[in-house]
Structures are given as C-alpha cells and as structure tokens.
Write a protein that binds this DNA or RNA. Structure first.
Lengths: 209, 209
DNA sequence: ATTAAAATCAATCAAGTGATTGATTGATGA
DNA sequence: TCATCAATCAATCACTTGATTGATTTTAAT
C-alpha cells in the first residue's frame, strides 16, 4: 500500500505563496473576523507551528496577504499591451480587465474590499493597499485627461472626480455579483457615455474578446 | 461623597438602543473581527450577562445592528421634503444628504460598508441590508428616469446603470475620507454633468445649506 | 403590602486561539 | 561522511471569548 502522501519540505517561498492563497480563500469564505491560523495550516496540510515558522504572527500574515494582492493586481495590469490605444479604448480596456478579474477570480475582489475597509484603521495594511488604489486612480485620471485633450471626452470633464466615479462604479458592480450573474455591459456602455463628448461619432467599442 | 453613579435598571428598549450604538462605535474602531461582547458591555457599563439578557447571542447582536442601521438610514431619508423638486434637484439632494451623513456621523458609513461585505456571506445580514440597498438604488433609478422623461437628463441615459454609478461613486468617496478632509463638491458637480443633457442651461444647483 | 416580571451581576464553563517549546527529519555543501 | 540549517510536527501554554447559571435587586401591577 501507499504511504500517506508526505508532502514534506517545501521551499519557503512556495510555502508562503500557498499560505497567501489559502488566506485569500478563507477570507473570501468567512471574512476577516473568521480568519483562523489553524484553519490556514489545515487547509494546506501543515502543522500550526510550521505556519508560524513561515509567518511569525497574524499581523505578518495580513501583511503577506496585502502584498500578494498588490502583486497580483500589478501583474494583471501589466498583462495587456496599452500602446497605440485611444483614450476611449484604454478606458474600455480598464473596464474589461476589471470584469475579467471579477468573473475569473471573484474571491480576489472580496478580499480587496475587505482590505480596503481594514486599511482605514490598520496602518500596515494601509501602507500597502493605499499605493495600489492610488496607482489605479492615477491610471484612470490620466486616461480621462488624454481623452479630454484629444476631444473624445467632454471638455468639462473633471478627470479626478471622473476617476472616482469609474472606480467606484466598478467596485459597486463587483459587490452586486455576490453569487448571481451580473452583466457588466450596461455599466460599461453608460460609463463610456458619461465621459464622452456628446454627439461624437462613437466608433465600435466592442470588447476585444 | 457621591456614590459611584449606579445606572441600574434601564428599560429594555433603551438598553438595546445603547447596545446598538456601542456596537457601531466598536465596529467603526476595530472592525467586525475586533467586535467583542465584553467590550460592548464594558462600554455601556453593564455586566456581560446583562448584555446576553438583552441580546441573547452574537448573531442576534449583528441582527440588531443591521436593523438599527436600516432604521437610521430610513429616518435620514425621510427627514427632507421631496415634493415639488425637479429631478436634478432631487439628485443633488441625494448627494447632499449623503455628504451630510458622512460628515456628521462617519462611523455610520464605516459600519455600512462592513455590513455590505458581510452580507455577501451572511444570510441574516443580507435579508436586512439588501432591501435597504435596493431601496436606495430604486430611489436613484426613479429620479434618473424622471429626469430623462422631462428632458433634463440625457435621452440615452440608462437609469439602472446610472444609479449604480451614482451610488458606487458616493460610497467610494466616503471610503476616501477615512480621516482626511474630502471635498464632495467636485464629485457632485461631475455626477450632475454626467447625467445631464449636453448643452442644457444649468440652473443654479448650489447646495441649500 | 404582595407578588410576579424585568433587569442586573458575580462567578464560571467549555471551546477555542495565537503563539511557543523542544525535538525530529530531510536537504545541502564541504 | 558529516556538520549545518531549513522545514516540520506533537504537545502545550496563557489567554480570550461567547455563553450560562443561579442568586439578587428593582419595577410595576394587583
């Protein structure tokens, strides 16, 4: 008979990756207040002491989680080429990438929303998540500025406020699809109408699926 | 000398109100995962057993909290008269009321965001918070429909998506003012521009402060 | 005044809960 | 081969935490 599969001795970095993944899953399931060190260890099949060997404390775990989230968002954003795209196409791409992430990995955004709330009162989380949010906000702001400059977006558009509107709308939509199917198309179309110059000839902005 | 002020024997309803208030404060401070029955009791100066007499379990406490939040939002909304207001004025009023609440009672929205997250995985919270969110969403949707009908808002405005945009933007803004001063005016102006008919003569929509 | 119900508290329980200790096991380079 | 170190685990500690028990005190109705 086979011995019970001993997965002993995994390299530290891989362990930490697995720990971050399990932490995400558990937070998505039970929220921050339901996050237990023991359950993380159990989920990846290691002893609680081994978990504390790799991640010395729960605070360090939260830090690891925040970093893991930041890394994934950054990688996601760097995946698509952005050269030679019009501002309108860039904005559409941002929306499509968000929808893609929500549908592909819904737990990611559950954890992101949880971390944003926690950032309001947790210094450590804030220093990691806040730059991420600001990067996103700047990204959208610059797209809106460019579109205003080339005339495709409204001349009286406020890029800063517009970015808050776009981001807030996307997060709101991601919240609404807790389990039911949510169609991003109406939001996508409405957001593009909101910022576009009225009466502008609208080129086909269909998704590049 | 005075005896240490014994606040013994308060009516049950008043106690439950005080418990709900203390619960809000504590969640705003330490989040859901930092909510402790003992700390609630301590905050209002009663024994832990007395707390359990009025609120039998932590689940019941969360339910009480959700109801308290719903009641306050509804009361807030009923405070301002809405007769004889144009759709544009109604939308502006919604935004102003939100800003007012955020500035007056910031903890309220911290708890609201926390409850919305929890609603995604907690049936009890969802059944209380979900109708509240839908009421708000319907309110905005109807305003946008009315504005589209009377020509003050864009003819191609999608009221449903527009409501998600308005609400999402407001919540996003409330998140951004975790402690720093945040000016709602730019968002307010941009939201009104987003939905308005282009080139429309814009009457003075200043706040009725 | 009597009495039943409501409200309160001190003490305690059982199940966690993050963290530590001390020893063991496997990999790796000299 | 052997010494070193990263990785692992069983056992346990000290403390937390939601909840309960049983008695006591105040309120309110008769």
């Amino acid at each position: 008979m086979n011995e019970p599969c001993k997965q002993h001795y995994v390299a530290g970095d891989d362990r930490r990756t697995a720990i971050a993944a399990a932490t995400r899953t558990l937070i998505a399931e039970h929220g921050f207040e339901g996050l237990r060190m023991r359950e993380i260890a159990e989920r990846i099949g290691i002893n609680i002491a081994t978990l504390h060997y790799h991640v010395p404390s729960k605070a360090a775990l939260v830090e690891l989680l925040a970093q893991s989230l930041r890394d994934e968002f950054m990688a996601q954003h760097a995946a698509n080429p952005r050269d030679a795209l019009s501002p309108r196409q860039l904005l559409a791409l941002e929306i499509d990438e968000f929808e893609q992430t929500v549908l592909t990995n819904p737990g990611l955004h559950i954890v992101y929303r949880e971390l944003m709330n926690r950032a309001a009162r947790d210094e450590t989380v804030r220093t990691i998540i806040s730059p991420l949010s600001q990067f996103w906000h700047n990204q959208i702001t610059r797209i809106l500025e460019a579109g205003r400059a080339d005339g495709s977006f409204r001349a009286d558009l406020d890029p800063q406020a517009g970015a808050s509107i776009v981001i807030g709308s996307l997060i709101q939509y991601s919240r609404e699809c807790h389990n039911k199917e949510v169609d991003f198309a109406p939001l996508r179309a409405e957001l593009l109408r909101c910022v576009s110059t009225p009466g502008d000839p609208r080129p086909d902005e269909r998704k590049t699926a």
